[in-house]
Design a binder for these strands. Sequence first.
RNA 1: UGCCCGAUAGUAUAAUGGUAGUACGACAGAUUUUGGUUCUGUUUGUCUUGGUUCGAAUCCAGGUCGGGCAACCA
Length: 551
Amino acid sequence: MSDEKSLNFLEEIIEEDLKAGKYTQIITRFPPEPNGYLHIGHAKSICLNFGLTKKYGGYTNLRFDDTNPSTEETEYVESIKEDVEWLGFDWKNELYASDYFDTLYEFAVKLIKKGLAYVDDMNSEQIAELKGTPTEPGKESPFRNRTVEENLDLFRRMKEGEFEDGSRTLRAKIDMASPNMHMRDPIIYRIKRTHHHRTGDDWAIYPMYDFAHGQSDSIENITHSICTLEFVPHRPLYDWLIENLEIYPSKQYEFARLNLNYTVLSKRKLIQLVNEKHVTGWDDPRMPTISGFRRRGYTPESIRNFCDRIGVAKRENIIDIGLLEFFIREHLNKIALRRMVVFDPVKVSVTNYPAGQSEIIKGEENPEDPNAGTRDIEFSGELYIEREDFMENPPKKYFRLSPGQMVRLKSAYIIRCDDVVKDNKGEVTEIKCTYLPESKSGADTSGINVRGTLHWVSVPHAVNVELRLYDRLFKVEDPSNEDGDFKDYLNPHSLDVVNAYAEPGLLDASAEERYQFLRKGYFYLDKDSTKEKLVFNRTATLRDDWAKKGK
RNA sequence: UGCCCGAUAGUAUAAUGGUAGUACGACAGAUUUUGGUUCUGUUUGUCUUGGUUCGAAUCCAGGUCGGGCAACCA
């Protein structure tokens, strides 16, 4: 086997097309509807569309599929642009289906003139009634055989706004008996006298998806129009319209959309979570949106690597969210600055350390990066360590602190536990230790090797920080497939807010950096942070083999 | 009971008629001043029944299972 990565089915098609001389360059498009924020499923499509033209030469357009003014807003346009850019992709042209409304109208007129479209006076119930079902053919509309002149006149008057919303439609005249429901005289224009985010009140009619998408592809000379599997049955209509309009033959190809367990990836559901305040917004770090991942501390690289690894195929798939976590850990491990933060403190008194004194200790910025250098950390005789890092009666193989045992304080000294102070409820309030002055990190002459290393902060120097610890948004793998409403399966513990003690160096934290809180996880400064109160989002935990053993 | 799409380890994804491989996970071990990282090893798979062929995950036929399609949404 060569070390070259094997091709996915779209790459194969493109390589064949290129070899056959069918195209000199590849043109794709990413076509979001601006009616919501982009999520990780869109990231797959973005990486695919932009990745293909980057690999084979050509370009990708960003085209907003804005043909339904009742759901679309400029806020969404802005967020989509920001997200695509953040992911690291540049579009050639920023385009809108609404840019083509005049052309699309002419296309419809052409179809009418060819006797391939007609104005139908039936309302939506009547149309549905005659549509048939997947197993029975439909029946023709009584308005199907109007003259070209009559159709032209009626369609013009639809455009002029003469008729009520929903009172008439323009339909392609294809085949009411087709086994493919989409070919049973699909509606291509509807009356909708609604304000459009770009064209304002210019139009009383708007094209349907099927009459806008493929035509926009064609106008832009898109060579490979890549969409998800649910559009497979639309493909005959896509081709029929292009053929009968006699326009540039873009080709549609379909791949399986991304599904992730323990979350939902449907705009309809995500918008509910936002509107019903189950989350704080589209960019809530628990959301599977690109903006949510960004705020949580994910990097564009990690998301791109993820999309690369999950591949592109036509079979339905549900990816384990753990794979995404793997890629963010992999990246953050390389770049995150190491800091020490104690989440749930218990006090350690170093009885042989000079009272009231402190010293500066050097800690690695990042052991994975030899050029990262060191940071200064205050050490004193009064410390906090993690409550879970001490046990009075430890099980076997516990190599944290316990009476009589020694541990290394990361980047500092080895200490031994001499005594434990408890309150009247039996809760440990203080651990008395002695330190080995000759065991200082980097200058250790003690000759003692200890198994455990703990993170710590100096009590008089510690700064208070707020930590937002996130867990999966849903407590079941596939909330959409459970009985009842998907929101019944929200994880009540998806957010846990903790006030913690951090080394003072963290006061300089910035959103330009990623942090690893030693032995705790990866953290990212949140936009809610103020000078008085630093707020960090937990991007991901560290792997924890000890916890996994169930001890 | 119409049409369309699909089926390879737990999850994804390769092998394009010629040794079923890779990643994640799981398990075991080594290293480690993060029970992190890194390294090594182990484990588990071609939906089914026929056919074609010297040879089938791959080609053909039947079946089974899963998904999609009956919005004036995209």
